[in-house]
Each structure stands twice: as C-alpha cells, then as structure tokens.
Design a protein around this nucleic acid. Structure first.
Length: 808
RNA sequence: GCCGGCGUGGUGAAAUUGGUAGACACGCAGGACUUAAAAUCCUGUAGCCGCAAGGCUGUGUCGGUUCGACUCCGACCGCCGGUACCA
C-alpha cells in the first residue's frame, strides 16, 4: 500500500459536516429503541460568538451522545438559542440597530460555529425563544400560573440597577452588585409581577432526593432555598392596636427577650408615627442606613448601630414585661418579618448590640460565659429564669412553649425561607410581553389564549424611561385594547418577562418543537422526558436550574406533563469546570484572552480542538487554557491517519495487544460515562502507541480502534471508515464488545516490599495463589536477601496480583 | 463566619475498594534525517548522591492508624467557588 497524503483536516471536516446534514444522520425518532435525552444549556447568542465554556459542555455531551448511539440508543441531542436579553437591547440603544437584527446575525454565527465543531445535534428540532411560535407558549404558561394564583402583581421593594434601569431578581444580584454591569444595586419600590416559587420551596428541597445531581448542586440549592423551622410570635404594642410579629428559630429563648429590633424599612414606624417621641432622630437614622449598600449593611465586622424608638413599648406575651423597641440595620426587612425578638444571652448579634447600648443580658438556659460572648445553647440542658417553666429540660420546653404560644393565640410553629417569590417583570423591550391587560372594572386579566402570541411590536426607541418604564409604554396604539372579560377599555401590561422565561421549559419543546396546537404532544413528552442527562454551568444552579424545576413541577401539577414522567425534569445533572485564560485569570474580551474556536479549527481542525478540550484536565475542575497543548492532539491524529499504511486483511495479533484492545474498549466506555474524558483520551493514545509499533494491523482491529476514537474525533473517523470501504456512516456502527477474560494481563508485575519499602519486583502469572513454594522463591531472591540482611521473615503478606510485603 | 471543592515533577495531569507515586501529554535536553530549518522519528527527563550498580528523599504542614497511606483519622496552612448580621 502506498503512502497516503497528509491528513487534511479542514477539507475532510467540511465534507463530513455536509454529509451528516444531507443524510440527517442525527435525527432523533419519536419511537423505536430505548431513548437517551442528552441536554446542554442552549446559548445566549452574544456578539462574541461561542466561547470556551460552550465548547467544553457541548463537546462533552456530544461525546456521550455519540457513545450512546453506538450502544444502540435512540438519542436526542438538541440545540436552540435563548436570544431574549439585555445585551442585544443595550447594543440597540447604542447603535440604533433593532435587537431583532443583531440577534438574527448572532444566531446565524452561532449556528455556523456549532456546525464547524461537528456536533451531532438534531438540527430539525432547533428552536429560538424569540420566535413568536415559541414564546406563545411561554406566555401561555404565565397565564396558567395566573389562573392558579401563582402569578400576582405587588408593590415590591426590589433590587434596582441604576445603570441598566432594570429590576433584578435576588438571584441576579452578585455581592450587592448587578450581575451584568457590576453597578451597585439600589432598593426601589415598584409594582412587579411575581411568581410564587416559595409555594414549591419544600418540594424543591425534598425532591432533590429523587434525582442524581452532583452533591454540591443539591447542597447549593438547599442552601439557597434556606428553609428554617421556627415560630412566628406576636408581641403587642403597649396602648396600641398594632402588633409586632417576629420570626424566630429559638422560641425556647423567649423568656430571655430584653428588647426588640425592627428593620429601618419596617412599617411599624409609619403606622405608629404619632406616638413616637423622637421621630426626627429615627428618620435621620433611616435615611442614613438607606444610603448604605446591601454590602455595607451586611459587613459583619461593622459595629452595630441603632436608635431606640421612644414612646413605643412591646409586651412579651409570656410574662407581660415591657420591652424597648430599637430600629437597627442589622435586621433586614427582606428576611422573616423584618423584626426580631432580641435575646442577647443566646444570640451573638443581640449580645453585641446589648453590650453597646447597655441593655440587660438575661440567660434562660444554663451555661456559657456571658461576659465573653453569647451562649447559643444548641445543646443546652436546663431552663432558668423562665417563670413556671424554670427547671424544665430544654428539649421538653421547646415543645411546651410552642404549644403554649398556640394555645394562647400569640404564636405558632412556622417555616421560613430564604427564597423569595420570583420577580418576573422587567421594564425593558427585548423580552416576551407579559400577556396581561388592566381594566379599571375587572382589574388584571389575562388575554384570551386564542389571542396568543402577544407579539412584541416593533419600536424605534429602545431606551427605557428614567423611572424605569418599559419602552413599550410609549406605544399608545399597542397599549390600548379591550378587556377580555367585560369588553370595556383596557390597557396592556408594558413590562416584559425576564431572560429566564424562555429557558424554563425549552427542553420540553424540543420533544415537539413545531406543534402549533399545544406546548407539546403529551405522547412525545412521555416518550422523551425526563431528560436523562443535563450538563451545564455551575452559575445556573440557583437560577435557571432552580427556576426550571419549579416551572416543570407546576406543569406537572396542571397536567401538561403526564404523570408517568414525574415532576422532576432532569434525572441527572452535572457541571463542567470553568475554562480560564492562560495564567488562570477569567477570560474576557477586555483582557483579550478569549478563545475563538474559528481560529483553532482553521489552524488545527475541529477534531484536534475537540480532543484538546476534553484532554485539558478533569472535566469538573476549572482549568487554564494553554495554546501549546493542542499540538499533542494534532500529532496524535496525524499518527492515527498514518496508521492506514499498515492495514492488511489479516494480521497476527499478539496477545498483549489484544488484551490492551479489550481493556481499552471497556475503559473508554466507562470513562465517557463518568466524564473522565482526559483518561479516555490517554487510553486512546496508549492504544495507538502500541499498534504503531506493530508491523501490520488487520482491518478488523483498525475498525474497532477508530470506532473508539470517533466520539472524540468524528470527522477523521468517518473518513478512515469510508476509506476502509464502508458505504454507511461510522455512527451507524456498534461499539465493539470486550471479552471479560481478556481484561487482565497474563503476566502481572508484582512489587516486593521489605519492611514497607519497595526492594524488588517480580513477574507472576495472573491470579497466582499463595504457596510455600512461592514464598521460598520470593525470599531467596537476591535483592530481597540483601534487603533482609540476614533478618528472619516474621510475616509474609501476599495480595494477589498486587503486592508482596515482607515484615522482618 | 458558614457550606462546597482543591493542594502531586518545569507545566496540564494519572493512580478501581489503602497495594510498585508521576500513566498520558506539553515543555526541555541529546541524537537521527536535512546544505539548513520546519516537520517527523529515536533516547532521556521527580529531586539529591554516584562512572555505574545502587542508595536516600519525595504527593501543602505536623501527628496518628497500618505490613503498606496521594488515598483513612486528628490538628493546622494555603488557594478557588458559593453564601451571609438569615433572627
């Protein structure tokens, strides 16, 4: 056989990409073999194009999808674009180019890039969240939520980004700053649509037990939801109808309350303004604390400040003691009831405050050194200073006190969540219009479902108003409508949905993307869902991943998701580590260290790029990109290519090589499923190095090797497969079988330790049993004798196929 | 502070349930081919001592369990991610 020409990646890769498209190679069918639904987070098509994080996630799932096809599964690996969002709109404001146009351009670029990498997506199911035929159902879901009382409009103290002029969900505030632009987030009172995700809080926690998510993801979601069990207790205000409701996880310390604290934003100040003697002082304090950012307010090391509200006293319901009330910004309005009962003896924060303002510190659980710090008494034993309850065990009292509160109608056991309802409106243009209208007679009403989609109208001016009105608020003609209920005059909602709206349910739509009668055909949902494996970024753990679980549960509850599917959308969730720029810094356009796949594909080919990304390091760890590293994979692929020259119809196969092949078949398959892509590739290299040393390779063996390679490097594999005379795509082949008996080598090298130090090694037939003969043979070896130096062997430890350890 | 994760050669990293630490690659050094370079191929490559055989040390630090520890236990140090006066 003559010398083949050098491997020309670009030419071969575009040939096969065209082939896959024309032959619809990766079309998923809605019936037949056992299904596998592999999902990756669809991208937001930014102007910069695909970045390294996309490549890592998509390539990994592509390898898994291709492997699953080899196992005979009917694989769905879909792709789409999540194209609503701020960047396109900000760009529109700057350049006066409609977001529709930039988005179109960006989407086309993303599709081009994704195809260049050779992903095995089922492109026939491609979807865009900005398509009215898609967001028709996003709007439909909103209406269903409204009908079920899960969507409501309320005056909310929201996180406001003064630069983006937009309200943010808690999940979008990073350390007190706007997730997107980094501006310091302010608080602002605004009317907003909210979704009652808190109603699902318990299920969102409990059902984590049903799914196979990485442990850290489960923990993070649990922490984010932040369930705490405790009690709500009503303290009455002296000479007033007003009550002060507090939440506490420690009702057992109620006899230790020596003062009360409310947040500066607490309504009690307004409601009781006429009784407050030092109102001016209080107001001054409130203004000062409002100026502080969330970050400053939450700085633990900062000394606590506060002002006593003169003229108001609270009454402790258990002993009728009068308690002073303070306003202090170490209590936040956003958590619990925005008011606390302060127990300085058993809470460190209250202790610090009491010390500073010389307030009584009264212990009610025995123990601790209150001159030094508060005594949390989590494992406390005996109650003290508790009136008729003094002397009870803490465990006993914990139950008794809640009963007492309930019986006297002053409090009850309750659960509090850190999670808040989800603020679901944005005062921006580029999003799904919220399908609600306001009628002065009928209040808020959803538009008729037959009128969906409410199409986002074209506008000329994308700028939001200074006070944060949506650009749509200027479109009188669009706003004016009729009430769906009474037919009278009504006005449309001008807010749009947040960029998370479309991604809440996109994986459902993939099962039936062109359906114009319903969100998706229940039969198809039944066939494909739940998603078997979802990979994505850790940054979405408390955002998209939590939101979409909530929405899926809701759709399950109203019957859109058939009961047999269950109420969890994803069976398994994994996350890739971040890819950093060289030197371990974050990749960013401003640093100029962004990886553009186009450059690498042009220079080295998609196969080399894919393999390099997978070879970089452990999939779940963050890792720094290194330009030099690609060369190793380029060399490897060239050597695979050159291996063709050694192919013959029949060749002797020595048993070591045969065993290596079988071991590799098993290891590569196992490694793919456990996402150990780096070691799978190193095994391919070991395999290739071994066969490179052979004079000849039989056709049959070579075919097996390139099937093993093909999930990682699909293009070169297709080309070699074709050159071997196959008419069909390699993707229609099956994964080679391994022979269990061939997984172990015939001879194993066993280390010999003397007193814990390795002194010698010996080749033994596999599975050699321990025997007097073996022991004598080992002990008589020269190196062993030298190491023993005349000492007697007291103990001979033999672990079959692993090690021999002598103790002298 | 709390909750996760991690710490191994010059670099990225391997190491099934504790069983020969450094597989596989990058880089580097030497050699072959070449007028030369690139590419390719071969050899070496944890550190220290030694011509070698061989020896000693070595997986963040200190200690423990064990015939045997990167792996298990205890204390600490450092880095990364998340989160926070959460009542």
């Amino acid at each position: 056989m003559g010398k083949f020409s050098k491997y020309q990646a670009t030419k071969i890769e575009s040939k096969w990409q065209k082939y896959w498209q024309e032959h619809k190679t990766f079309l998923a069918t809605d019936d037949g073999a056992e299904k596998f639904y592999g999902l990756v987070e669809f991208p937001y098509p930014s102007g910069e194009g695909l970045h390294a994080g996309h490549l890592r996630s998509y390539t990994a799932m592509d390898v898994i999808a291709r492997y699953q096809r080899f196992l005979g599964k009917n694989v769905l690996y879909p792709m789409g674009m999540d194209a609503f969002g701020l960047p396109a709109e900000n760009y529109a404001i700057k350049k006066n180019i409609p977001p529709q146009e930039t988005t179109r351009k960006n989407i086309d670029n993303y599709i081009r890039q994704l195809q260049l990498v050779g992903y095995s997506f089922d492109w026939s199911r491609f979807l865009e969240t900005t398509n009215p035929e898609y967001y028709r159902w996003t709007q439909w879901i909103f209406i269903q939520m409204w009908k079920e009382g899960l969507a409501y409009k309320a005056q909310e103290n929201i996180n406001w980004c003064p630069s983006c002029l937009i309200g943010l969900a808690n999940e979008e505030v990073i350390g007190g700053n706007c997730e997107r632009c980094g501006s310091v987030v302010e608080k602002k009172e605004k009317e907003q649509w909210l979704l009652r995700i808190t109603k699902y809080a318990d299920r969102l926690i409990d059902d984590l037990a049903k799914v196979d998510f990485l442990e850290q993801i489960k923990t993070q979601q649990k922490n984010w939801i932040g369930r705490s069990d405790g009690a709500e207790i009503n303290f009455s205000i002296k000479d007033s109808e007003n009550k002060l409701k507090v939440f506490t996880t420690r009702p057992d310390t109620i006899f230790g309350v020596t003062f009360m604290v409310i947040a500066p934003e607490h309504p009690l100040i307004q409601d009781s303004a006429d009784k407050i003697e030092n109102l001016e002082e209080i107001k001054k304090y409130i203004v000062a604390s409002r100026k502080k950012s969330d970050l400053e307010r939450s700085d633990l090391s900062r000394e606590k400040t506060g002002v006593e509200i003169k003229g108001l006293k609270a009454i402790n319901p258990v002993n009728n003691e009068e308690l002073p009330i303070f306003v202090a910004d170490y209590v936040t309005v956003a958590y619990g009831t925005g008011a606390i009962m302060a127990v300085p003896a058993h809470d460190q924060r209250d202790w610090e405050f009491a010390r500073k303002y010389k307030l009584e510190i009264r212990p009610v659980i025995e123990g601790g050194d209150l001159d030094k710090e508060a005594y949390p008494a989590l494992n406390g034993v005996k109650m003290i200073n508790c009136g008729q309850f003094t002397g009870l065990s803490v465990a006993d009292f914990q139950i008794k006190i809640v009963n007492w509160l309930q019986k006297n109608k002053v409090g009850q056991a309750t659960v509090n969540y850190r999670l808040h309802d989800w603020i679901f409106s944005r005062q921006r243009y580029w999003g799904e219009p919220i399908p609600m209208v306001y009628c002065t007679k009928c209040d808020w009403q959803p538009v008729a479902e037959s009128d969906l989609p409410i199409v986002l109208p074209d506008v000329k001016d994308f700028k939001p108003g200074e006070e944060g009105q949506s650009p749509l608020a200027k479109l009188e003609s669009w706003i004016k409508t009729t009430c769906p209920k009474c037919g009278g005059e009504a006005r449309r909602e001008t807010d749009t949905m947040p960029n998370w709206a479309g991604s809440n349910w996109y994986f459902i739509r993939y099962t039936d993307p062109k359906n114009n009668q319903q969100l998706a055909d229940p039969e198809k949902i039944k066939h494909w869902l739940p998603v078997d494996w979802y990979n994505g970024g850790n940054e979405h753990t408390t955002l998209h991943l939590l939101y979409s679980r909530f929405v899926f549960k809701f759709l399950y509850d109203i019957g859109v998701i058939p009961k047999t599917v269950g109420d969890e959308p994803y069976k398994k969730r994994t996350a890739q580590g971040m890819i950093l720029g060289s030197g371990g810094v974050k990749m960013s356009k401003s640093k100029g260290n962004v990886v553009n796949p186009d450059d690498y594909i042009k220079q080295y080919g998609a196969d080399a790029l894919r393999m390099y990304i997978m070879f970089l390091g452990p999939f779940d760890q963050s890792i720094a990109w290194d330009d030099k590293g690609v060369t190793g994979l380029v060399r490897f692929l060239n050597r695979v290519w050159d291996l063709q020259t050694k192919i013959v119809d029949e060749a002797e196969l020595d048993s070591a090589a045969e065993r290596l092949l079988h071991q590799s078949i098993k290891k590569i398959g196992d490694d793919i499923m456990s996402m150990h892509f780096n070691t799978a590739i190193s095994q391919l290299m070991i395999l290739m190095n071994a066969f490179d040393k052979q004079e000849q390779i039989s056709r049959n063996i070579f075919e097996k090797i390139i099937i093993l390679l093909s999930p990682f490097a699909p293009h070169i594999s297709e080309e070699l497969w074709e050159k071997l005379g196959h008419q069909d795509s390699i993707t229609l082949a099956t994964w080679p079988k391994f022979d269990q008996a061939l997984l172990q080598n015939q001879l194993v090298t066993v280390g010999i330790q003397v007193n814990g130090k390795l002194r010698d090694t010996v080749e033994l037939p596999a599975d050699t049993e321990d025997s007097a003969d073996l022991q004598a043979q080992i002990c008589s070896r020269e190196k062993v004798q030298n190491a023993l130096n005349g000492a007697k062997v007291k103990k001979f430890i033999y672990i079959k196929n692993k090690i021999i350890s002598l103790v002298a």
